[in-house]
Design a binder for these strands. Structure first.
Length: 369
RNA sequence: CCAGGGGUGGCGGAGUGGUCAAUCGCACCAGACUGUAAAUCUGGCGGGUCUUCCCUACGUUGGUUCGAACCCAACCCCCUGGA
């Protein structure tokens, strides 16, 4: 499958494939931008909805956008916030509602109940305040067990909103006098759940509108809980190969490898950071330098549950083939101790390690593709 | 020595005649987590051919009772006051 290898954004080359950990609220929990850089992380994704509620777009604008705010000079993608609000509203209908004009969301916070309304236009406006490198259109998330009419509705609205996002995007680019060189990129999101015709329709209509890249939307898992590679491959086939494909929310290490093989170049996922906080660490079972073909390799990594008693006296690093700050300086026994006494350093070291595992994987994939 | 209180599964700690192999928490074991309301959640956790079945268990020994972790007696140990 053809895949773009480099992608020029604001005058700089983004090397693909690349993995963006989720700094949803403008931070990767427990670590800072310097840690991220040292872990080989090249970019982060932040969430428009979360930043809208805190600190708010005007604060972000005032403080020079999210990069300046975070002290981060790598790449930034801003997600539309649609997915988050949709999935929360699905779990609990009292949290908000979805209309043809966008999403209304009620946030319960310490200040009480706040109401947020995000239309496609506002979604783009906020992303300009965030000042990200890649912006994502507001899309209509399709639930896992969606019926045909729901899938059709989600694709219809995704296309309609994408048009509105594009119009608003161009308006903002013009107003700011940005050029092809200096403007951010805008990605559309392909919905359509498990329906190949709907995925195809969505992809074709989005391409007519014209985007800088195309995202894999929805919940792309089969009944076994594995990535549905069949539908993902189909989406690759119906999206342009001269534009980057972005697997939103993908995935675990094997899932990322599988999607790169199918032509996807950008990824983000909460797993490495959340797993780290939940004491699940990634271990290379083979030296990545010795892996000939990562795409066909089996059993090349495994999970290490650091809280296991057997690691109390283990002086080895988390992973013998990892060069991260945690592995170079500390033992499994020490990290286990930090988790046991609930010191936040445990989160920091574990998060750095899991993110380094991903960045090493991306380096491996880059040389393999 | 006297007066009170107490001894329950690896630990803490419920239970005070049958529905108790014994609530719950911790620890331990095995997992889950995929555009982050997640330092969260789920299952297991005496033994057995692991079962609506059996065995062994609530300090020890004996007793009362159809039936005891729960009642009685003696003994052993621990804690708190007083000599």
């Amino acid at each position: 499958m053809d895949m773009l290898k480099t992608f020029e954004v604001k005058g700089k080359e983004m090397q693909l494939p690349v993995f963006f950990p989720d700094a949803t609220r403008g931070v990767i929990r427990s670590i800072d931008s310097q840690d991220l850089k040292n872990a080989g992380t090249l970019g982060l994704i932040v969430n428009t909805y979360h930043l809208l509620s805190q600190p708010g777009p005007s604060v972000l604008k005032h403080l020079g956008g999210v990069k300046n705010f975070m002290g981060w000079d790598g790449w930034i993608i801003s997600d539309s916030g649609g997915f988050q609000m949709f999935s929360l509203i699905q779990k609990n209908k009292s949290l908000g509602s979805i209309t043809k004009n966008g999403v209304t969301f009620h946030l319960h916070s310490k200040g009480g109940r706040k109401k947020y309304q995000i239309s496609p236009e506002e979604c783009i406006q906020i992303q300009f305040d965030i000042n990200s490198d890649i912006m994502i259109c507001l899309d209509y998330f399709t639930p896992f067990n969606a019926k045909d009419d729901e899938i059709k509705l989600s694709v219809d609205l995704t296309i309609e909103w994408a048009k509105r996002c594009k119009v608003e995007f161009e308006k903002r680019v013009k107003a700011r006098k940005l050029t092809e060189e200096t403007r951010p990129k805008l990605f559309g999101v392909v919905q359509g759940a498990h329906s190949k015709p709907e995925r195809e329709r969505c992809a074709i209509e989005l391409e007519k509108i014209g985007f800088d890249g195309y995202g894999l939307g929805g919940w792309v898992f089969n009944n076994e809980g594995e990535l549905d590679l069949d539908i993902i491959e189909h989406i690759s086939n119906v999206t342009p190969s001269n534009k980057p494909r972005y697997g939103l929310g993908v995935g675990n290490p094997q899932g990322v490898v599988d999607c790169v093989r199918l032509g996807w170049g950008i990824f983000d996922c909460v797993l490495p950071t959340r797993d780290a906080r939940h004491k699940r660490l990634y271990v290379w079972d083979k030296n990545p330098d010795d892996i000939k073909d990562i795409f066909t390799e089996k059993n090349w990594y495994s999970y290490l549950y650091i809280s296991r008693e057997k690691y109390v006296r283990d002086n080895a690093p988390i992973s013998e083939f990892c060069d991260c700050h945690a592995c170079k300086n500390y033992s499994r026994g020490y990290l286990q101790h930090l988790f046991t006494i609930e010191d936040t350093l445990a989160f920091r070291l574990a998060t750095i390690h899991n993110l380094r595992m991903y960045s090493m994987l991306m380096e491996k994939l880059k040389e393999s593709f």
